[in-house]
Every structure is written in C-alpha cells, then in structure tokens.
Design a protein around this nucleic acid. Structure first.
Lengths: 136, 136
DNA sequence: TTACTTGCAAAGGCTTTGCATCGCC
DNA sequence: GGCGATGCAAAGCCTTTGCAAGTAA
C-alpha cells in the first residue's frame, strides 16, 4: 500500500504513521466513515493513535481535498474519500449505506447561478428510507 | 396567534405555554432555526423555558410532523416548519439561508425504487457556496 | 535544524436523561 | 385525578484546544 504515501506527497503532507493508517482505511473502504468507526478500527488493529490526532488528520484531509465531510442526520460527521460525485441511500432500519451516481445536479447548479445569483461550490444530497432487504 | 393552538390540537398535543411559544416562533419564521437561536429568542422575550424542554418539544414536533429536522454541516441540527418541499442555498461567507423549490427529486425517488429497490422516505438536498452579495 | 505533528489532559458545544414537581384536559 | 409536560441537575457524546514533547524532511 504505497498509494497512501503517494497521496500524502502530492498534497505536501508529511508522511507519518498515523496519516498512513487513516488514509489506508479510507482508500480500502469507499463508504462514509465516522470518527468512532476509526477508533474501533484502531483498537482492533492495536494501533495506538490519539483521538485528537484523528480529528486533526480528518480536518487536514478535508482541507486538502483528500476527503469529503458529510452528515447523515446522526449528530456526527462522516468522511469519505473524494472522487466520484455520487449520493447516498441510507437505510433507517439497518443503517446500511449504498451509493447512487450523480444524475445531473450540476445542471441545477448552473440554473441556480443564473436565476438566483448564488454560486454553488458543493452540495449534499442524501436519501433516507428502507433498503430492499428491510422492506418486509 | 391561535394558529399554534389549532396545530397542537390537530396533533393531539397538550396546549402548554412552552409549546405555543416555540411553535409561534416557527410559524412566524419559515427558515431553518437551530436550538441556540431559540434560546436567544427566549432570553430576549424574557421567557424562562428550560433547554431540556426545548429539545423535548423539538423532538415531539418532529415526531408529529410539525417540524423537519436538518443539518447544514455545522455540527448541530436545525428545524423548519413542515410544508413546502424545498431546498436550501447556504452562503459559506455570511451564513444566509435562502430557499429554492423542489424541481423534481421525486422523479429520482421513483427511479431509485425501481432500479435499486430502495424505498425513499425523505431526502435532504443542500447547496453550499456564496450568495450574490458575497461574491465580490 | 526547524517547522510540523502527536499525545495528553482538559474543556467546549450540543443534546439527552432521571427524577421530582407541576399543570393541562 | 391522572397522565403527560416541565425544571433542574447531571451526564453523555462528539469534537476542539493548549501545551509540551516528538519527529519527518
């Protein structure tokens, strides 16, 4: 796994153990991950990294555009590797998260610019409901 | 202001002073309001209602469908009176919030149902960027 | 070497909970 | 009168911050 090393270099970030571990986790799981899931992962991996460090790494990665930060109405943030523009289907029963691709929100954004004068930098779109397995 | 009284009756909720005050605030302001804004409003109005009570009222109103709960990536919840299906333009400079009407997300929802088997109950869509006054 | 990163400990912000009291219907 | 709502105090999460020590480049 030296992809993480490469990414850190590209972004002019020092290559530290903590950053590599966190970045590898995100590179291996392209699903939105919350801080507490990172903590559990680290305990399981017997990897002793402080919470404050994790939060600082997450902030740095978001600033550098490596991660996206999002909220799923849980009262906490989730983070996902940047890249494909897509949205999420969040099951309110089993909490599973799946993706759907972006089907043309950027068209709206142009319209918003011309009609409202508002310049859209980013958007968030999430769907909440029940996944196919949870509909009995 | 007996609209609030009517709403509470319709929802089978006891008509208490705290609920009326909170509901009136939302009926008079159809913009997303956070709990701390309610606290400030109450202080200004010299209205002594406990924070716990406010949070409990907000939960009740969301359960009953009187309010919608949403997040604008601020690490806290906002609430807005239910009704028209619309989305928000959030200015990252001046924090102003404006509305745009729903332009067809419900079409997507049908598509999601048929293609993915996922049953959408609700969705959230927010646009972040700069309002017209903040673009210099 | 030097500026950046980390750990530790503490605090901060938002929200929830338990329990006794109060008040609407 | 009875059940539900409220106040008070405490705690629970999630996250941030200050500072000293450690470390990559």
């Amino acid at each position: 796994m030296d992809k993480s090393v490469r990414v850190l270099q590209e972004k002019n970030l020092k290559n530290t153990h903590a950053r590599q571990v966190v970045l590898d986790l995100f590179l291996q799981n392209s699903t939105p991950i919350a801080a507490d899931q990172i903590f559990s992962y680290l305990i399981e991996k017997k990897c002793d990294i402080d919470r404050a460090t994790i939060y600082r790494i997450l902030d740095t990665f978001v600033e550098k555009g490596i991660l996206h930060r999002m909220e799923f109405q849980e009262g906490k943030f989730r983070y996902e590797i940047s890249g494909s523009d897509h949205h999420h289907l969040i099951c309110e029963k089993c909490s599973s998260i799946s993706d759907i691709s972006d089907c043309g929100i950027s068209e709206w954004e142009k319209e918003i610019r011309s009609k409202k004068g508002f310049l859209v930098k980013r958007h968030s779109l999430e769907f909440f409901g029940q996944c196919s397995s949870c509909q009995s």
